[in-house]
Computed example of a mutant assay.
Amino acid sequence: MSDDAARLDEAAAALLALPPARFTAARNERAAAAGGALGRGIAKLRKPTVAAWAVNLLVADGQLGEAVELSRALHEAQDDLDAAELARLGRQRRQLVTALARRAAELASEAGTPLSAAITDAVEKTVNAAVVDPAVAAVVLTGRLVSAIDLADLDPSDLGAAVAGSVPDAAPASAPRDDLTARRARKAAERAVREAERARADAEREKAAVDKRLATARERADRLRERVEGLRADLRRAEAEADEADEAVTEREEAQRDAAAVARDAARALERAEAARDGGGDA
């Protein structure tokens, strides 16, 4: 690519990221400043549609990289005839395309040009085309789109009309067989890593649950030990009090016996005194 072509692409990318309402004035000003062949090339740049401009915002915002990676993954899954992977990636593609169209609407609103429902639909179709078709992806990722792209109406020979400046070469849709084999091995290794990570996460969750149960059991055991020690202390106090009560009973029993003996002696003395009294009266 010549220096003039590279400079034209650079100028186109900068101008096509501007809101469409500002494009014409900015283009003419830049063309006049550049002059020469470059200036003439800039002056010929077409004003982008609002949908194309919104897609350019996504590119400038770095939002389409994941879509392109998904496109490559889709082609790999098709090469591998992996039905489960195709179904999963299909769902992921639809979710991603919808999210990117919503993000484009947010960027456009922030730039002062809200998107209508029809324009948002055109953005969504363009992003979907980039995900599905490597040639479209290459054009879209330049950030120099001037018109939206719909796969249903796309003529590959006209794809260059949708982009300002040079037309990039499309990345190959599939890789050589050796590269495909390597990718399959990588995918198998990645699946093994994901499964190992899931197993580790499951094990960590189980360990956390076991740790929690162990802590609860230890806490309960500590409480029971404290209760046992308290009961033992109560038992020791009760036994000591029982021993003291037994000693008091013994002392009182001895006092009772002594009192009973004294009472008997007193009764006998009384009997003798009464007998002596009664006998003296008879004399």
Score class of each variant (00 low, 15 high):
residue 131 V to T: 10
residue 103 R to C: 04
residue 161 A to E: 01
residue 117 A to F: 07
residue 179 D to F: 15
residue 107 L to Y: 12
residue 268 R to T: 13
residue 72 R to F: 09
residue 30 R to I: 00
residue 228 V to I: 14
residue 6 A to I: 12
residue 193 V to L: 13
residue 18 L to S: 15
residue 182 A to G: 03
residue 5 A to M: 11
residue 130 A to M: 15
residue 119 I to E: 05
residue 53 W to D: 11
residue 142 T to P: 10
residue 80 D to A: 14
residue 42 I to G: 09
residue 243 D to G: 03
residue 19 P to S: 11
residue 234 D to G: 13
residue 135 A to F: 04
residue 71 S to P: 00
residue 105 A to P: 01
residue 13 A to K: 06
residue 220 R to V: 10
residue 260 A to G: 13
residue 245 A to N: 08
residue 196 A to V: 10
residue 174 S to N: 03
residue 256 Q to H: 02
residue 91 R to E: 05
residue 53 W to A: 14
residue 200 R to Y: 06
residue 22 R to C: 04
residue 32 A to G: 10
residue 260 A to K: 10
residue 224 L to E: 11
residue 275 A to E: 14
residue 189 A to T: 12
residue 198 R to L: 03
residue 157 S to P: 00
residue 87 A to D: 15
residue 272 R to I: 13
residue 159 L to G: 05
residue 122 A to Y: 02
residue 263 A to D: 13
residue 254 E to K: 14
residue 245 A to Q: 08
residue 158 D to L: 05
residue 277 R to V: 11
residue 182 A to H: 06
residue 241 E to A: 15
residue 100 L to N: 06
residue 249 V to L: 05
residue 120 T to Y: 12
residue 16 L to C: 14
residue 226 E to S: 15
residue 128 N to V: 03
residue 63 Q to R: 14
residue 83 A to S: 08
residue 190 E to L: 10
residue 100 L to E: 01
residue 87 A to S: 13
residue 245 A to H: 15
residue 21 A to T: 09
residue 68 V to T: 07
residue 88 R to P: 03
residue 219 E to Q: 10
residue 229 E to I: 11
residue 153 D to P: 00
residue 174 S to E: 03
residue 80 D to T: 03
residue 177 R to H: 09
residue 129 A to W: 08
residue 262 V to I: 15
residue 169 D to W: 04
residue 230 G to I: 02
residue 75 H to T: 06
residue 166 S to Q: 03
residue 199 A to N: 06
residue 218 R to L: 11
residue 253 E to Y: 07
residue 65 G to S: 07
residue 75 H to Q: 11
residue 87 A to R: 14
residue 119 I to F: 00
residue 117 A to M: 11
residue 139 V to K: 04
residue 57 L to T: 07
residue 263 A to Q: 09
residue 20 P to T: 03
residue 245 A to R: 13
residue 200 R to K: 07
residue 54 A to M: 07
residue 64 L to K: 01
residue 164 A to W: 02
residue 172 P to D: 08
residue 251 E to F: 06
residue 72 R to H: 12
residue 239 E to T: 11
residue 37 A to W: 05
residue 3 D to I: 00
residue 268 R to E: 11
residue 5 A to H: 09
residue 128 N to F: 04
residue 122 A to L: 12
residue 273 A to W: 07
residue 47 K to C: 01
residue 5 A to K: 09
residue 224 L to A: 05
residue 17 A to Y: 00
residue 249 V to P: 00
residue 37 A to L: 07
residue 247 E to I: 08
residue 120 T to K: 15
residue 251 E to V: 13
residue 7 R to S: 02
residue 77 A to W: 06
residue 103 R to M: 01
residue 203 A to N: 02
residue 44 K to S: 15
residue 24 T to R: 14
residue 115 L to I: 05
residue 12 A to Q: 07
residue 202 D to P: 00
residue 183 R to D: 13
residue 113 T to P: 06
residue 221 A to E: 08
residue 191 R to V: 01
residue 143 G to D: 05
residue 77 A to I: 14
residue 191 R to A: 09
residue 133 D to S: 14
residue 282 D to F: 12
residue 190 E to D: 07
residue 25 A to K: 08
residue 241 E to F: 02
residue 69 E to K: 13
residue 182 A to P: 02
residue 138 A to S: 10
residue 193 V to E: 13
residue 173 A to H: 01
residue 60 A to I: 05
